[in-house]
């Protein structure tokens, strides 16, 4: 009997994307709050994310990094990344750890 393909979960995706950083801020994109939505259907991952600033020069590299990292996960057959600007990113979206690292107040202001 063939081995069943493991199902990828949202936790797997978020865990894997801790390996992808925003090179300018030097922090992973999950804790920076750049991920807006993760959709999984079968082995297909549909990810909606943003950048810290519109026109980020590293945008294509970050998207490429996301695609490459997720494609390595077992059970993933395709990755689609949509970059959106609405709602705009704000430091409020950062995790507590990221806010502490950048010495940003808890309310993100």
């Amino acid at each position: 009997m063939p081995e069943a393909t493991p199902m990828v979960t949202i936790e797997d995706v978020r865990g894997a994307l801790h390996d992808v950083i925003d090179p300018e801020l030097g922090f992973n994109i999950v804790d920076l709050g750049l991920l807006y939505d993760i959709g999984i259907e079968g082995g297909l991952i549909d990810l909606t994310m943003t950048m810290t600033t519109p026109g980020c020069p590293a945008q294509d590299y970050i998207v490429g990094g996301v695609e490459r990292r997720l494609a390595e996960l077992p059970g993933v057959s395709g990755v689609f990344v949509n970059v959106v600007w609405s709602p705009p990113w704000s430091p409020r979206r950062m995790s507590r750890a990221a806010k502490a690292h950048f010495r940003i107040r808890e309310d993100g202001e």
Partner: peptide, 11 residues
Amino acid sequence: GNRLGRAPVPR
């Protein structure tokens, strides 16, 4: 840039 997601990279 093209190593992002494949291996650890510096900031």
